[in-house]
Design a protein around this nucleic acid. Structure first.
Lengths: 238, 238
DNA sequence: TTTACTATCTTGTATATACAAGTTATAATT
DNA sequence: AATTATAACTTGTATATACAAGATAGTAAA
């Protein structure tokens, strides 16, 4: 058994994705839904608010909930997703090459990024992502060893997120992302197939656990022609 | 008078921004807050959930609400903000040049982007944003005339969002953003100070009203060295 | 026909209660 | 001293009720 409102959220979200509730149509009213799911109005409203936050529906007072075009918003490179989940959704042939994997004493920059004390060590993982035979993404990850004691090449070739959530039982909660465009470094040129490109897109990622402790800093360096970021944002008034 | 939970949200958010609740400290418990604001627990929880969604706090069951480092997350180019609001926050000298302003019969691409019928016209507005004496952003906006009947150069030099929300009384609700990197067009080179740059960052923006009707399509073209995008994302499990 | 009202639908806000579940400090036990 | 149980705190979930406010359709009145 699970959360009731999360279950309802997932069920309605699936229905929207599968077209059972088509775009531009209206969802049943809260009253109808609480009857269908035999629950209370507040529980239905929690599920509907989740749907609204994630871009599935738009609620209009007095009218009802309008179904948005899910294909438009449900794009993978939004929010927090690992490369493995992402590549799986895109469905192209993909491969991960672990270029570097070692436990290091961090330099000043990394130390600052991860809020580290002098004695603490970090795992440094550099991975090149190959999609459709082209090396187009370089991921540079740094994990605080306090949280991730040991890493192997096998774990890095799969999803480190998966390992952390399933094996270590910790929950990744939120992240801050920063996107900028810079000139390629010598390392970028060596590891990526940059052809004639003069820029790389750098996505800096600060990933936090459930208890607000920072545990990972990632730099994801993309070939500009293969980069795309999609975001759904609601306006907060005030 | 206003929403109680929105008022409480704003008050606590301000307190966090001003350092009254410093980063890494704990907020008073829900019980304390409902006493302080003489309200119910659900109302406090609504305010706290808003704070959590917008990256001000992290809630931990059994422990309390931890204040996050607001300066880290409260960066302007996230979510939905107009250039005027943004430039105001950054505080640099800024200027807007209206390069084009006309009512047009849209071509196929725009027609598709805005879901237009054959008879409908759109306002086309091209504006160059100058910051610190350099022309670094080209904003190409297209408004469905059905929603915005008339536009003047004066309105375009200020904030069109402001005009729509205050003068026309409509509410902008949510947007979908898409970020890609492309080669500059002849227009980019003519209107922006691109110097030696070989790319521009294109932010495509689809802006919707309260009732889920699409009313604006914007392309914001940035010089790559002056571009920065910051995003706060929570992971949805499942 | 047009206008104005009204009843009824919708979602939004505010409150109260009950229990579940995670955390922490204290007291009791071994 | 170390371990275990307990009580007291925290947030999370589920339910019920009441009224406010926006939207809509139908009815009555002008």
């Amino acid at each position: 058994m699970q959360n009731k409102y999360l279950q309802i959220y997932r069920e309605i979200a699936d229905n929207i994705r599968e077209g059972k509730y088509p775009a531009h149509s209206k969802l049943p009213s809260e009253h109808d839904l609480l009857r269908d799911y035999s629950t209370s109005r507040e529980t239905i409203r929690k599920a509907l608010n989740l749907l609204s936050q994630n871009g599935f529906i738009q609620k209009v007072q007095g009218k009802g909930s309008i179904v948005l075009d899910a294909r438009k918003f449900d794009f993978p490179i939004s929010g927090l997703v690992s490369f493995k989940e992402l590549a799986g959704k895109i469905g192209e042939k993909h491969q991960t090459h672990v270029e570097e994997l070692e436990l290091i004493t961090p330099d000043e920059e990394i130390k600052q990024q991860l809020h580290l004390k002098d004695s603490q060590h970090v795992w440094k993982v550099h991975r090149v992502r190959e999609i459709d035979g082209e090396r187009i993404i370089l991921d540079k990850d740094y994990f605080n060893q306090m949280y991730v004691e040991h890493l192997t090449k096998e774990i890095c070739e799969n999803s480190i997120y998966e390992y952390i959530e399933n094996e270590l039982g910790m929950t990744i909660s939120f992240a801050k992302k920063e996107i900028i465009v810079v000139e390629p470094t010598e390392e970028d040129r060596r590891l990526l197939k940059l052809d004639g490109f003069y820029n790389v897109v750098v996505v800096k990622n600060y990933v936090y656990f459930d208890d607000a402790s920072l545990f990972q800093y990632t730099e994801s360096r993309h070939r500009p022609d293969k980069f795309k970021f999609v975001d759904f944002a609601r306006r907060t008034h005030g």
